[in-house]
Simulated scan of single mutants.
Amino acid sequence: MSIPSNSKSIRRTLIRGALVLLWIGLGVVTFIFARGHTLLVDNRNAEDGSYRAPDLIKVSVDGGKGLEFFRGDRDRFTVVGKKHTIRVEFSDGTPPFEGKFELPLENDMYMLSVPKMIRGIEPFVEIFHTAPEPRRDDTEEEDDFAFLREGGSPNSQ
């Protein structure tokens, strides 16, 4: 009993299609669960004075290497995935704080405020935007070669 060649090609096409869908699905899952972010951890007082940052703390994210933060410090961690844990150890004998948070997939850089998190103030994780450099107007730019057209030297002005 032999299978007609037409059904073999249909079966081969179906298997290849299933493999392509499997690879696409694997890519989507990898993107979602292995997405990297830069997390800025901030230990600063509130601008309005509503809370104070701890004097000296040691912070570790996802069980990684801990970094020491004095009041007013900010440092960065590189994290992978959506769900993360943070551990804050205090130098004054206060019991350690452990918390969980999630980072959305949309942006690359987030800032976590430790003082807000330990006090339960929402939102303690915010999108971090770098300040763009101001553009100079073309009319304000100096002409570095004007002295050549005027026949002088750059120091004679």
Rank of each mutant, 00 (worst) to 15 (best):
Y51K: 08
I15Y: 13
P132K: 15
L19A: 13
G66I: 00
N6D: 11
F77Q: 05
N6Y: 09
L40E: 03
D138H: 05
H84C: 06
V125R: 13
F77K: 02
S2K: 09
K83G: 04
E47L: 15
D73R: 00
F77H: 01
F70N: 09
D144L: 14
D42H: 05
S5C: 03
I127E: 14
I121T: 12
G63V: 08
L39S: 03
T78M: 06
N107C: 05
F128T: 05
P154E: 04
G66C: 02
R71P: 00
L103A: 02
D92Y: 11
R11H: 07
I15G: 04
G81D: 09
K116C: 07
F124C: 06
F101R: 04
L21M: 13
I24T: 02
N6S: 14
V61Y: 07
D75A: 13
S156K: 11
E126I: 15
I118G: 01
H37V: 04
L67A: 08
R16S: 12
G66Y: 02
D137S: 13
G49V: 06
S113D: 10
H129T: 13
P96F: 11
F128N: 12
H84F: 02
G17E: 07
S7D: 08
H84W: 01
E142A: 10
I127T: 15
S91P: 01
G49P: 03
R52T: 08
E106M: 09
T94K: 15
F147Y: 15
M1S: 11
D62F: 01
H129R: 15
S9A: 14
S5Q: 12
P115Q: 10
N155K: 07
T38V: 15
L112F: 05
L67G: 02
T94V: 14
A18E: 09
L148K: 07
F90Y: 15
T78G: 04
F31K: 09
Q157N: 13
T130D: 13
D62W: 02
